[in-house]
Design a protein around this nucleic acid. Structure first.
Lengths: 250, 250
DNA sequence: TCAAAAGTGTTTCGGATACACCCATGA
DNA sequence: TCATGGGTGTATCCGAAACACTTTTGA
């Protein structure tokens, strides 16, 4: 969508979208032992915010979130989970910001309740795309986030908490890592999310014990040390394990 | 609010409330070894539904939920937790129902996204109050629910799942039982929610091990057998334990 | 040849489970 | 006096945590 089209679309937001209701997405990725979040930077004012959007009048919220995700990452089939709805009347919006937004029509300057989703994506496959309001769409380390507009900082921390909670309910690695990965990589992912060190040997035992990983004959070469095995998730066993509940426990 | 007032209020809903957005509450109570849910029965059509309502234009969603809870139960200080937002475009609304509702104005017949909360209340303290649309407000056993309108059946089951999940994160008994209760009562509550039997002795050990219960010298008399001790939650210890996480594990 | 990372197996400990006996009460 | 429910303690087991040695590789 071109800039001009976008402005017109927004100005008449309530014609297409449900008023007062938005979706914000916390998109998690993992790269170089860092948990990352995809952020947008506004053209005007240079404020940072979460990728978000609105809900078409006959669209489900889940579909809206999926659409927003697709637009920002160029990915299909994203793992997506609704985690909380933020409904404080004005969600820390400064008058300055509202004024900025009102350039795009009165619609944007009204109260919004926002439904928060978090997404887990394969960092290496994402092709970040800014939206009409933004000049950049970029990954940021979770522990060096810039100041975010509104209550988006709170939304990120709530999402992170939700992610940590759900870590024991499904194997997050499947979504955040490339298809083939090493055990140390998987461990570092868990350590990063949980923000605590784990024992190498116990971690491997636990993961293999789930019987959802398939060890490949291939090894990861090029590293400076002993070549680790590559693994990949066994889809069938993975699905089956999910249904029974995982019994992890970190 | 009188009936007539209520109708006028609803007819002009969008003047007071955020459009397209509602709150539904799954209010859990516990009585005679049964987990119960508070339901409303419509005057017209006799349909059953969850207590719900709308969000005032400058009211937070949490406040709206609290207000709705207060109106239906006459209780203050209710334990309330947002668990999911339901956003399918029309959420299984039949045309018949929409027609019924449209008597109260066009506003009600439009698409609604609803934010689900569940509440835990002391059954014995609740004074159920029907709302303007309803003739009765009554407790129903969780496993013999009538057919509910829209997707309210799904909302209840999602709430129950969320309650079960959170059982390990905070001591549910505090909210669902009267101030003083016996260990067997507490156990039956857990057994009912989890829908599985628990060992009497291990249950007691686990609960007392949390060190949030205070045993009273008083015993519960009047039963047909040995008089069980009465317990009550120790507020200070309870708060402290909550912050550290509970490490239950059922 | 050495430091650093990866692969593997054993011991240990604590919490959960299983289980048995005594006590109080009303029928 | 006996059936029923309530109070308490102990043995056992399994899974988690702690831990050490060997192998590979590039520097």
């Amino acid at each position: 969508m071109k800039d001009q089209e976008f402005k017109e679309f927004l100005a008449n937001g309530d014609q297409y979208y449900l008023p007062h209701l938005s979706v914000d997405c916390v998109i998690f990725g993992f790269h170089e032992d860092q948990l990352k979040v995809l952020l947008l930077k506004w053209k005007e004012g240079g404020h940072w915010c979460l990728p978000g959007g609105f809900i078409l009048r006959e669209e489900s919220i889940d579909d809206a979130a999926t659409r927003i995700l697709r637009d920002r990452t160029q990915l299909e089939d994203i793992f997506l989970k609704q985690f909380h709805t933020f409904g404080d009347p004005f969600r820390d919006r400064s008058k300055e910001l509202i004024k900025l937004q009102s350039k795009y029509g009165k619609w944007l300057s009204e109260r919004f309740v926002t439904v928060g989703y978090y997404a887990l994506v394969d960092f290496s496959k994402v092709n970040p795309q800014p939206d009409g309001l933004s000049e950049t769409c970029a990954w940021t380390d979770i522990d060096s986030l810039p100041v975010l507009i509104y209550d988006h900082g709170k939304i990120v921390s709530t999402a992170l908490t939700a992610l940590r909670m759900s870590l024991n309910d499904f194997p997050v690695g499947h979504k955040l890592l490339p298809e083939k990965f090493t055990m140390p990589e998987l461990q570092r992912l868990y350590e990063t999310i949980l923000d605590k060190p784990l024992d190498r040997r116990n971690f491997q035992k636990k993961m293999l014990g789930l019987e959802i990983l398939e060890r490949l004959t291939e090894r990861k070469t090029g590293g400076a040390h002993k070549a680790p095995y590559l693994y990949r998730f066994d889809k069938k066993k993975y699905e089956r394990a999910l249904k029974q509940g995982l019994k992890l426990g970190f």
